[in-house]
Design a binder for these strands. Structure first.
Lengths: 154, 154
DNA sequence: ATACATGCAAACATTTTGCTTTGGC
DNA sequence: GCCAAAGCAAAATGTTTGCATGTAT
């Protein structure tokens, strides 16, 4: 493959670890080893992760946070709007880091479970404001997942 | 309120009970009292229901299907694409009947949990074909939910 | 009569909470 | 040293399976 594929690749404008840690600090939270491991795991993730996956990955280094810790940290990060749940129609919950500017959606294969990240601009983003006005809701976020058969499975 | 509100109300082009029963029959499935109760419950539902809610509602009449039955029937209906899961960020799964032509999405209040059905044309529907081609997926369905503060809670 | 479907009970998975101990500030 | 956070254990909740019995066809 040449550079044409790469030309379409978008810049992942993600939070940096330091930016997130600064947010935690300014919220009066403490920077523990476990939290750092979890955040590094999320930063490296190429797809949404379950709590167990986060714990496993975060335990590679020296930290090895307890499952309960992962559970509580993820709850906190979700409330702080630093992470988001992604619905993959599986038994457990999946999380991903929320990017400050960019929003992307997912395609999930109904056969093999594979998750593809969509790189185009989200078609819903533009409607959000209109919907807020029409239905009187405020602070709208959304969650959009596509389900179908991936190239391999179809 | 005058008729102006009603003017925007759309026709709920839903399956009829008989249509669904015909589909079950042609799939070689048997028409039991429990299944009928469940389907009637889904037809009357004004919002997505959990398995327990379906069981409770379906037990009003004489049928009273067991929870396991509800679980299995819903799984089957989902595979048959007659119902769909809706993600409300709650502990359990919620289901709704899938309409043959019309597709609608939901707005969920993050404070009180209230669910509002959206009546406009779904902005994603139009993109689905494009996405199928671009990513090589087939038979795409999607799930779109908005989360925010409802008029009462904001 | 013959499967298919149900009900019941038990297993399983995941999420959540209580409480004691640890460690960041 | 103080108090938030972690770890551990146990409970609560929700989902799924096995098997004997019932029932639609």
């Amino acid at each position: 493959m040449g550079s044409s594929a790469r030309r379409h690749a978008h810049l992942h404008t993600r939070f940096t670890l330091d930016q997130i840690l600064a947010r935690l600090r300014s919220a009066g939270m403490r920077i523990t080893k476990g939290r750092q491991q979890i955040l590094i795991t999320l930063l490296n993730a190429k797809r949404p992760l379950s709590l167990h996956e986060i714990q496993d990955a975060a335990s590679q280094g020296s930290g090895a946070p307890d499952f309960t810790t992962v559970f509580r940290v993820m709850n906190t990060l979700e409330k702080m709007q630093l992470v988001q749940q992604v619905h993959l129609n599986r038994a457990s919950r999946y999380y991903e880091l929320l990017n400050p500017e960019e929003h992307h959606d997912h395609i999930v294969c109904t056969e093999c479970g594979r998750v593809t990240l969509m790189v185009e601009a989200c078609p819903v983003q533009a409607y959000q404001r209109t919907i807020e006005r029409r239905y009187g809701y405020a602070d709208l976020k959304h969650s959009l997942e596509f389900f179908g058969k991936c190239p391999e499975c179809k």
